[in-house]
């Protein structure tokens, strides 16, 4: 090192190669994927998400759900994801156009959520589960997200959005009800919107049996 200039140049070059190859390629090629018109319905594929669902993704992020839940169906036959019915088809990059942020995830401490909106279409199920997971699934190790809910005194009649069917130590006492906050409503809207049941040119749906 007669002065580090030459070394710095070499370090820059070798690093630049990987940087351009992975980051540059991804930003330029994957970053320019667009949704495509669906000739049958006139809508776009992948379908856009509602504003409430997009807000819900923010709650999903703020509470770190991704640390246990993946959102990708891997290819067959390398993996058994399709056999295990995690989805109708493998996930492709274009699927991540639906939301501002993509969270393919790295852990399946909990189940994959790619199609949770298809598997569990009932909003009240999600509210019960988020409020007290072990009421729904006794062996679950998911944290409770009670901070997304309000416990309220029932005034007159039960609120329409009150969570039904709660039991266990955190169930509301007689005369009280558990009501989702705006954050819980958004989060559940996000979870219900997770449905990969549309075809894409690079990922057609399998023909119906």
């Amino acid at each position: 090192m007669r002065g580090p200039t030459v070394t710095l140049f070499a370090l820059t070059t070798v690093f630049f190669a990987g940087w351009a190859g992975i980051v540059g390629y991804s930003s330029l090629v994957l970053g320019h994927l667009r949704s495509i018109p669906d000739e049958e319905t006139g809508n776009f594929l992948p379908p856009g998400a509602s504003g409430l669902a997009i807000e819900g993704q923010r709650i999903f992020v703020a509470n770190g759900c991704v640390y246990c839940h993946s959102q990708q169906v891997r290819q067959s036959p390398l993996t058994t994801d399709l056999q295990k019915e995690l989805g109708l088809r493998a996930t492709v990059p274009r699927d991540y156009l639906r939301f501002p942020a993509a969270f393919p995830g790295t852990m399946r401490t909990g189940p994959d959520l790619t199609n949770v909106g298809l598997r569990k279409p009932d909003a009240n199920w999600h509210h019960r589960h988020l409020y007290e997971p072990r009421v729904v699934t006794p062996w679950s190790i998911m944290p409770a997200f009670r901070h997304l809910y309000d416990l309220r005194l029932i005034q007159g009649q039960t609120s329409q959005i009150a969570v039904l069917g709660l039991s266990g130590p955190h169930a509301p006492a007689a005369g009280f009800e558990v009501v989702p906050t705006g954050e819980a409503l958004a989060l559940v809207a996000y979870l219900l919107s997770l449905q990969q049941n549309y075809p894409l040119p690079d990922a057609p749906l399998p023909a119906a049996k």
Binding site: Y96, P100, A102, P104
Partner: peptide
């Protein structure tokens, strides 16, 4: 590319794991 001015979703996983 991921925090200040995020790139579109499809490009994020590769940048993140890089």
């Amino acid at each position: 590319l991921l925090v200040w001015r995020p790139v579109p979703g499809p490009a994020q996983p590769a940048v993140h794991w890089w």
